[in-house]
């Protein structure tokens, strides 16, 4: 474990708790893409299947359990409890356009042709594009609530910090996982224009609105 990965994990935890808190407090999931949340749920479930079989550390097990629980809770709030506030007219990104290619790629490009490894690879690839419906929704509505933009900033920062973690681990531990690195770079690049808007607008107290 290194500081970059730790801060990255905490940023990730902050992001998902921030979103859950926003939906719970405002009793509304307006501006939140349910499709992205479903895909994140899928990411955690397919990646953490080894939750009970492969014990790494208390920290690892606890975080995995929290991620899965918070993802399920968020999906429940969006599609059940506060379903009336779910903006399905703007959450129109076709998930199958992401899940099918990612599923195929996981079969073709992986480290080991075993069920667990292919599911892990699927999870890594899916995570890199899972935010697209959310970014697409913001581009359609033309704006995002400030709390939602903080959520996106924390979520985008987590994988950016993981890239630094991978550089660190390459130089100090001779470790690197090309699949995770390439997917992590794609994932972080997708946030770039959002990061720009966040830094130039939200950090100056303005609302995040896309140029119409």
């Amino acid at each position: 474990m290194n500081i970059f990965r730790l801060v990255g994990d905490l940023s990730h935890l902050l992001a998902i708790l921030l979103l859950l808190w926003k939906i719970w407090k405002t009793r509304s999931c307006a501006g939140v893409s349910g499709k992205s949340q479903i895909m994140f749920g899928l990411v955690y479930i397919t990646r953490y299947l080894d939750l009970f079989t492969n014990f790494i550390s208390i920290y690892n097990t606890t975080m995995k359990a929290i991620f899965i629980a918070v993802a399920i809770a968020t999906i429940y709030l969006i599609y059940f409890k506060f379903k009336a506030t779910y903006d399905s007219n703007h959450d129109t990104f076709r998930m199958e356009f992401l899940i099918v290619p990612v599923g195929g790629l996981a079969f073709l490009v992986n480290h080991d042709f075993t069920a667990l490894e292919i599911l892990w690879t699927f999870s890594i690839y899916l995570e890199s594009v899972a935010i697209l419906p959310q970014l697409f929704m913001i581009s359609k509505t033309g704006e995002a609530e400030t709390i939602t933009s903080h959520y996106l900033f924390a979520l985008g920062s987590y994988r950016a910090l993981y890239i630094v973690n991978w550089v660190y681990r390459y130089y100090f531990e001779g470790f690197f996982d090309l699949i995770a690195i390439v997917a992590g770079c794609v994932q972080t690049i997708l946030y770039c224009d959002f990061f720009y808007l966040y830094v130039t607008k939200v950090m100056h107290g303005k609302k995040l609105s896309l140029p119409a």
Binding site: D9, I56, F67, H111, F175, A180
Partner: peptide, 10 residues
């Protein structure tokens, strides 16, 4: 290079 065999990352 060594792969992420022990999958210690989240």
């Amino acid at each position: 290079a060594q792969q992420n065999k022990d999958k210690d990352e989240l």
